[in-house]
């Protein structure tokens, strides 16, 4: 019982984390401007009687996306970005629907803006369940060349609301869900970057919860929990300038009585230019709203239920 109380407290803290981070933006202002301050040599620093500026590791990743997950990257201040994400159907039907390319597809349009070099905010809409998302991403730490900070640390949170007809919901609050993720990444060398990202999903409504309430009266526990923990392990390998191999694995951690989501395994290719990133890949996740991916994925890589997808990002600097 004590454990449940502690976990509850922790979850509440995680839910409040983005607001804490937003309010602490002023406190981190010194760090965030340091990114854009020209570096000075140690000799110059001695002359000016100041400490040498930190040399930050750059381009750990080339895009805010690593297939279905966010990366630690926050685009530079004043960047407006438009994302087009697309997921086709699974390939396991073969020629019948041309390996999923002619199956029902899912599309996500996203728009975000970097308010500072560390804070990005945006909105997106996904076709599946007509889901709108509002999200914030905050770069807490950036890896430094001298290993003062051996990793980059970024927080990502979103709130999603489904906008289908009200007949699909019992309560208005059933439309809402939340996703929080701590992104920890290290650029190991010029070729390899890796990222580990634990996440927490909260679904206001879960399938079967009203049946569960009935079951609870007979003394049985709920079949599905509203909170779900998962972890993503991902990496990038540079083939040549502007071309990378991407790999990602998502492991669900929370066990539910029924309908446990399957892990996600994905592999892809990324090509980047000055203003674009293009990723094409195969993986198991279809929904693109991260909480729905982590909570509801029923595509199993062991049954070859892979699907083809692509992400396109376009950047403008103001």
């Amino acid at each position: 019982m004590k454990h449940i109380h502690t976990i509850g407290k922790l979850l509440k803290l995680l839910t409040l984390m983005p607001f804490i981070l937003l309010s602490s933006e002023a406190l981190f202002a010194q760090d965030s401007t340091a990114v854009e301050t020209p570096e000075v040599t140690e000799e110059e620093a001695v002359e000016e009687n100041t400490a040498p500026a930190r040399k930050y590791v750059k381009n750990t990743f080339e895009s805010i996306w690593l297939i279905d997950n966010q990366t630690v990257m926050v685009p530079i201040k004043g960047t407006f970005e438009m994302d087009i994400l697309h997921r086709f159907g699974t390939v396991d039907n073969g020629y019948k629907d041309f390996y999923g390319l002619f199956a029902s597809s899912n599309i996500r349009l996203g728009f975000n803006y970097s308010l500072t070099g560390r804070l990005m905010t945006g909105v997106a809409i996904t076709k599946s369940n007509m889901t709108w998302e509002g999200y914030v991403k905050y770069a807490i730490l950036t890896q430094t060349r001298g290993n003062e900070y051996p990793v980059s640390l970024t927080w990502y949170s979103n709130m999603a609301v489904e906008t289908r007809l009200k007949e699909n919901y019992i309560h208005a609050s059933d439309r809402f869900s939340y996703f929080h993720q701590l992104l920890i990444a290290r650029k190991i060398n010029d070729r390899i970057s890796v990222q580990v990202a634990p996440s927490l999903t909260h679904m206001n409504f879960v399938y079967g919860q009203f049946v569960d309430s009935f079951i609870e009266k007979s003394g049985k526990i709920r079949e599905r929990k509203h909170d779900h923990l998962a972890v993503s392990v991902a990496g990038r390998f540079r083939i040549k300038e502007g071309m990378y191999i991407l790999a990602n694995y998502d492991q669900p951690l929370t066990r539910h009585k029924t309908g446990n989501p399957h892990p996600n395994l994905s592999l892809g290719l990324e090509v980047t230019t000055s203003s674009h990133a293009f990723q094409i890949f195969m993986g198991n996740y279809y929904f693109m709203t991260p909480q729905r991916n982590n909570y509801y994925n029923q595509n199993n890589y062991r049954d070859q239920q892979f699907l083809i997808g692509f992400n396109i990002t376009r950047l403008w600097n103001f």
């Binding site: 854009e36 020209p38 570096e39 530079i76 070099g117 000055s274 600097n317």
Partner: peptide
């Protein structure tokens, strides 16, 4: 200068 804010 906006896309590459680090002059170095």
């Amino acid at each position: 200068k906006k896309k590459i804010p680090d002059q170095d």
